[in-house]
Simulated scan of single mutants.
Amino acid sequence: MSAESEGVTLPASYQGDAAPVRSTAGRHLRRDWLIFASLMGLGLALPIGQGGFTLYLGCIVAFHAIAALGLQVMVGLAGQLSLGHAAFVGIGAYASILLEKRLGLPFPVACLGAVAAATGAGLLMAQLIRLSGVYFKIATFGFGVIVHQILTNWVPLTGGTAGIRGVPPIGVGGFQVTTRLELFLVEMAVLALVYAALLRLTHGRIGRAFRALGQDEVAARSVGIRTDRYRVAAITIGCAIAGLGGSFMPHVFRFVSPESFTWHESLLFLIMITVGGLGSLPGAVIGATLLVVLPEYLRDFAQYKMLAYGVLLIAALAVMPRGIAGQAARAMNAVERLRRVGSRP
Score class of each variant (00 low, 15 high):
Gly7Ala: 15
Gly84Pro: 04
Phe107Trp: 14
Gly238Phe: 05
Gly214Met: 00
Gly51Arg: 10
Val319Ala: 15
Ile66Cys: 00
Gln327Ile: 13
Gly26Cys: 09
Ile206Thr: 14
Tyr195Gly: 01
Gly104His: 01
Gly58Thr: 12
Ala212Cys: 06
Glu265Asp: 11
Thr158Val: 06
Gly159His: 05
Ser2Phe: 00
Met40Lys: 07
Leu199Thr: 06
Gly49Thr: 13
Leu278Gly: 00
Thr274Asn: 07
Leu57Val: 11
Phe301Met: 15
Ser257Gly: 11
Ala37Leu: 13
Trp154Thr: 08
Phe36Gln: 03
Gly133Met: 05
Leu290Asn: 00
Ala62Asn: 03
Gly120Glu: 08
Ser343His: 11
Ala121Tyr: 04
Ala95Ser: 15
Val177Ala: 07
Val172Phe: 10
Ala68Asn: 05
Pro108Cys: 12
Ser38Tyr: 07
Ser280His: 10
Ser222Glu: 09
Gly166Cys: 06
Thr178His: 09
Gly70Tyr: 02
Ile225Asp: 00
Pro321Gln: 14
Leu128Lys: 02
Leu181Ser: 08
Ala68Arg: 05
Gly310Ala: 07
Glu187Cys: 14
Met272Leu: 08
Gly84Cys: 10
Val8Phe: 12
Asp300Met: 11
Pro47Trp: 09
Ala189Met: 11
Pro47Thr: 14
Met74Asp: 01
Cys111Ser: 12
Ala78Thr: 06
Gly76Trp: 02
Gly310Ile: 03
Phe88Leu: 15
Gln176Phe: 10
Val134Trp: 12
Cys239Ser: 11
Ile286Ala: 03
Val186Asn: 03
Leu281His: 02
Gln215Ser: 13
Thr140Phe: 07
Phe36Asn: 00
Arg130Tyr: 03
Gly283Glu: 03
Ala110Met: 04
Ala121Met: 13
Leu44Ala: 11
Arg322His: 11
Val61Ile: 15
Ile324Arg: 06
Met1Lys: 12
Gly84Trp: 09
Arg200Leu: 06
Ile97Cys: 10
Leu199Ser: 05
Phe301Trp: 15
Thr161Ile: 12
Gly41Ile: 01
Val134Glu: 15
Phe88Arg: 10
Phe175Gly: 04
Leu267Gln: 13
Leu44Gly: 05
Trp33Ile: 15
Val109His: 05
Phe175His: 13
Tyr297Phe: 15
Ala329Pro: 06
Phe175Ala: 13
Ala308Ile: 15
Ala288His: 00
Ala220Pro: 01
Ala219His: 04
Leu268Lys: 12
Thr236Pro: 00
Arg211Asn: 07
Leu29Glu: 00
Phe269Ala: 02
Met332Asn: 06
Pro321Phe: 11
His85Pro: 03
